[in-house]
Design a protein around this nucleic acid. Sequence first.
DNA 1: AAAAAAATGTGATTCAAATCACAAGTTAAC
DNA 2: GTTAACTTGTGATTTGAATCACATTTTTTT
Lengths: 226, 226
Amino acid sequence: MAKHNCTDCKIRSVAENFLSNDEFGSLESNSAEVSFKKGEIIIKQNALSLNVVYLRSGLVKIHMAGPAKEKILRLVKAPSYLGIPTTLGNKINNYSVTALQDTSVCFIDANFFKMLIAGNGQFASEIILELCKNELFDQQRTVNQEQKQLPGRIADTFLCMSERLFDNDEFEVPLSRNELADLIGTTRESLSRVLGQFCKENIISLDGKIMKIIDRPKLQQICDLG
Amino acid sequence: MAKHNCTDCKIRSVAENFLSNDEFGSLESNSAEVSFKKGEIIIKQNALSLNVVYLRSGLVKIHMAGPAKEKILRLVKAPSYLGIPTTLGNKINNYSVTALQDTSVCFIDANFFKMLIAGNGQFASEIILELCKNELFDQQRTVNQEQKQLPGRIADTFLCMSERLFDNDEFEVPLSRNELADLIGTTRESLSRVLGQFCKENIISLDGKIMKIIDRPKLQQICDLG
DNA sequence: AAAAAAATGTGATTCAAATCACAAGTTAAC
DNA sequence: GTTAACTTGTGATTTGAATCACATTTTTTT
């Protein structure tokens, strides 16, 4: 694998803080740093899952082919691990991961990652914590998606982007309208209509992909009332 | 806590096989065995999450109050841990767990459980594996639920019950029609109509809650085509 | 055993969102 | 710089499933 230096890596995961010097040394020889351009596939659905991926910088989408069309499960920004569930839980990848911006990742050999976990409970604890939080988040999202109607789901999605990804009232939506629909669980046309409505009511403003939340309380209200 | 004996427990979890004698001893003094009757609440949403629960025998539903109504997230049969995500990932319970049959569980002190994980990577590995598999299962279910229409979702649910819970073509649905609707993500009325249709087409037969799959290939086909 | 409460099935109606259809705008290719 | 390919917005129509309404059956309580 490519020569690189993990010990001095400035972008450590929380879990990595619990690794010993020895473990860091082994990590170096069992991982490889790779760059991806926007649009490139980092993890491919149905391929063998041989690596856990550590996302060092950038933004990605986790997505899978559903029975009828593509579904975007989640957007993930650095720093974060990618593919742990599918790499540890299945031989082949249940989902794809694609870069939404230029990103830098480290591929970590799956067996080595398993060894790290088995040999270091504190490291494992942090991995478990991340998995637990993701499960809670996904459950909440599943219920919202199922019980809220479209305007509520769209409001929810934008608030989430603003708060969790960009920490800003104004941001560039990192998805096409079609992708945004795949994330929200609707169609491009229906999304477009609601977006138009939100603009007309001065809740948000849109200029292409640049999105600004103008009336956050109103948007929150639409989110809450479903 | 109640006096009981973990070392000789016949119903160990896979993870527990990796515990040392010492760890088993501590587990005994940090856990309590409790029985629940059908309908009783084992974990209560919004209460403080102070325990991980090990389900020794019986069947439970994991459910939460959504924005509009109750949602059943999953049915779980023994042996399995319950509440790990919410106990490790949040101070209060994100969801409830209710017994669908008479069940026996062990409450395990959350801090002790965290210590077990941090101190024993192999134990942690097994917990991680369970969390990973659950996440994959939930993701698949989320996409199916969103993209399949009602008959497909209902077929999916019955096939899943038959294969994963009862391992039989004939079984007693452990839920009321209302609960079944909350699991599938529909209403009692819509569910009832599709059920009537399935019976009329001789795909299943229903006598109250006793359900028999007559034409499995047809049911699978409805599931697959959505 | 009678009465009350809860669960279930079924028809009529409504509605949110998907689908269909097409125009306009934007980006990429030659 | 012109053509082609893709993306986006918007109106008209259709439709799957929710809602409403009520009868019937089953279960629980007294």
